[in-house]
């Protein structure tokens, strides 16, 4: 029974979020609005109505007001959004991204990113409304993938690209897709894998960080227990979402690290360390690289040295520093005890 006091989110919120939440700017209806955009629904748990007063000649947003139903960060995002767009032209405002909304709040916790998406969608809706076009989030190109939250393939791809998402839990946090019945899980995986592959090809994310259908984690349990003749299908509690950290961008101008490049870097690093090992009468030879495991053979004095494990962790530290990815150095071959070390 691991219940705790119910406001963990309070601790995660920045001072800016708290300020916008407790003292929202530009809240309430706007009578003279000539552009209105809506996003979210009551059943989603958050909804935003954005009202704009736009100068028809200059297309400058003279005033913006919001009404929001939702959590602290939904209200704060709406408030921040109005401040971001007042004084901007429609063209300028249409380029506003989810990240810019989140950044204006000093960042949002990952599981709250959909609040910034809500703001973005309502703004796009209002702009379309101003231009006399119809627009809803689900009108973005592509079929509706998550019917519970009304998220289209186009919206998913957009969110994946803009935020470099590499896991389904991130995708759910950013777009709410898959937050309901979860039956679209396979489709979410497929869209994520495809878009990640594109991002890797474009050199925007590292291949290791990308999501692929071959390397995915096991699928979580379905959200309902199968109906039996006696009992109808019942919703079952889903675990609290755990968001994996976002993928780091691939180094600018450099292609994602290939295995060959990785091995080359490891060899260079060992070469750098070799003089120090030789000085103490030992040596180290690279045997193989298996994913994140670096297999080495220690020889000479290193084999008998009581400090061998310290030496190995020293090599490991240097490698991690050089390559910037987590690696584990595992000695193979004879050890002082005549057994093959397993690395445990």
């Amino acid at each position: 029974m691991t219940e705790s006091a119910g406001a963990p989110a309070m601790l995660d919120y920045s001072d800016k979020i708290k300020d916008h939440f407790f003292n929202p700017k530009n809240a309430g209806p706007l009578a003279e609005a000539n552009a209105v955009g809506e996003a979210g629904t009551l059943s989603c748990g958050d909804a935003l109505k954005l009202m704009l007063k736009v100068d028809p000649l200059t297309e400058v947003i003279l005033d913006a007001r919001f009404q929001t139903f939702g959590c602290g960060s939904a209200i704060a995002s709406s408030s921040a959004l109005t401040e971001l767009i007042i004084g901007k032209t429609i063209v300028e405002a249409s380029g506003l991204t989810t990240q810019q909304i989140a950044a204006s709040l000093g960042g949002l916790p990952p599981e709250k990113m959909h609040c910034a998406v809500l703001g973005h969608d309502a703004l796009q809706g209002a702009i379309a409304n101003f231009r006399g076009e119809a627009w809803t989030a689900s009108d973005e190109p592509g079929a509706l993938i998550c019917k519970c939250s009304g998220v289209s393939e186009g919206s998913l791809k957009h969110a994946i690209r803009m935020n470099r998402l590499t896991s389904v839990d991130q995708l759910t946090a950013f777009t709410k897709a898959g937050a309901g019945c979860f039956t679209c899980y396979d489709k979410l995986e497929a869209v994520l894998a495809q878009t990640n592959a594109e991002l890797v090809a474009e050199g925007l994310i590292a291949r290791e960080a990308a999501f692929s259908l071959q390397t995915r984690a096991p699928k979580p349990a379905p959200a309902t227990v199968a109906a039996t003749p006696e009992t109808p299908a019942q919703p079952v509690a889903r675990p609290r979402i755990q968001i994996s950290p976002l993928a780091p961008s691939a180094p600018a101008g450099e292609p994602a690290m290939t295995n060959l490049r990785k091995i080359k870097l490891i060899e260079e690093t060992i070469e750098e360390l070799r003089p120090f090992l030789r000085k103490d009468g030992g040596d180290c030879e690279l045997i193989d690289v298996d994913g994140s495991n670096v297999l080495v053979k220690m020889s000479g004095a290193c084999v008998l040295c009581k400090l061998a494990s310290a030496t190995i962790s020293g090599i490991q530290e240097k490698l991690v520093e050089k390559l910037g990815v987590p690696l584990r150095v595992i000695p193979v071959g004879k050890t002082p005890f005549g057994k093959a070390a397993s690395g445990h």
């Binding site: 691991t2 119910g6 989110a9 959590c71 599981e111 937050a179 609290r240 979402i241």
Partner: peptide, 8 residues
């Protein structure tokens, strides 16, 4: 409170 961190 177990589910307080989730949006569900």
């Amino acid at each position: 409170a177990c589910t307080a961190g989730s949006t569900e």
